[in-house]
Design a protein around this nucleic acid. Sequence first.
DNA 1: GTCTATACAGTGATAGAC
DNA 2: GTCTATCACTGTATAGAC
Lengths: 202, 202
Amino acid sequence: MKKSTKEKIFDTALDLFSQKGYSAVSIREITRTIGIKESSLYNHYKNKEQILESILIHFRNDFSKTLPPIETLDQILANTTAETFLKAGHRNFKEYMENENGQKMWRILQVEQFREPLAREIILRDFFGTVIDFLEIVFTKLIKMNRIRSISPKLLAIEYQYPVFSMLTEYNILKFDGKDTAEVEQRLDQHIEFFLEIIKIN
Amino acid sequence: MKKSTKEKIFDTALDLFSQKGYSAVSIREITRTIGIKESSLYNHYKNKEQILESILIHFRNDFSKTLPPIETLDQILANTTAETFLKAGHRNFKEYMENENGQKMWRILQVEQFREPLAREIILRDFFGTVIDFLEIVFTKLIKMNRIRSISPKLLAIEYQYPVFSMLTEYNILKFDGKDTAEVEQRLDQHIEFFLEIIKIN
DNA sequence: GTCTATACAGTGATAGAC
DNA sequence: GTCTATCACTGTATAGAC
């Protein structure tokens, strides 16, 4: 349960960066929060930039774990309806949204995206790309199985996921101000219902 | 054609803030770029924060002009098909996307959203809210006129616009790195075609 | 409206004692 | 692995001459 100094630095930096942005947070502020001297920090991280880098890399690994492996897809899809599958993904996603560290990571990505090439890469590749590619495969399989209407799988992936990205943006801004998120959560539910209606075979 | 010092400060700050973020840009950097002394800047702006504020307020006014006034809606809709109307909006939006200052403003909003309450307000209210409300009115009218299928106007507004927000995010990251945006632009076209198909009365 | 001069707190980072 | 001490530099901002 005891956190190492390195972990304390990581967690504190994660928290402060996500609130003020990398540039507005000083080494002094991080170390003061933890209760160590500035010089001690350099025993754990080479410099300030490396703290951010370690946060971004950690997030990237973390995020890649949220989707089920492609190899297991056939088996999963054989045993569930399209509706159940998408709604399970939805629950998964909601859990991620409600996770405090997930929100912090998301904020850092948003805020550092034009200052930090790695942030852009994570947003484009891991966040947009990976999810869209995954969904395209899912919809391709479901169409072949004749379980949903035959519409371009890539288009379906976009129609399903892109609104979710926007809702996540909205959700996180509201959360940051401690405002009510019921409406945007309801929108997400409605979106999924609507999408299921579109792909349903009549 | 000659820019006043105040305009130079505004433009330079807009450019630098949009690349590095507010906190990472110093007064020194702004004044050095223009070729004046730091102290001279304070003749035009009270402090650094006020420069950002003036940028945000300028953007807000600018953005509110991109939608046609509600009063003119009935007349516009009487003379155009739903398809023509949405495609005109699409062109309008694309023009905005390709505008350099529009891209800079968007980047600033993204980057300052958790540090600057006004940025959050603009994103939520002016960017998300205004457009969704506008579209909801449009779709309500089109349904009453029996020109599109009868689906919840609010839901239609979301299904239409939210993917566009995400595509704008993607577009601007690609643009920032000078990468090819053909694919995301194609996605936007496909999305609109797909949406038109959904709302079409058979 | 721009300049010089100045203030002074905060910045990331290092050397070396313990 | 943490500390003290110190570094050179950069940060915003102001006073007052021209």
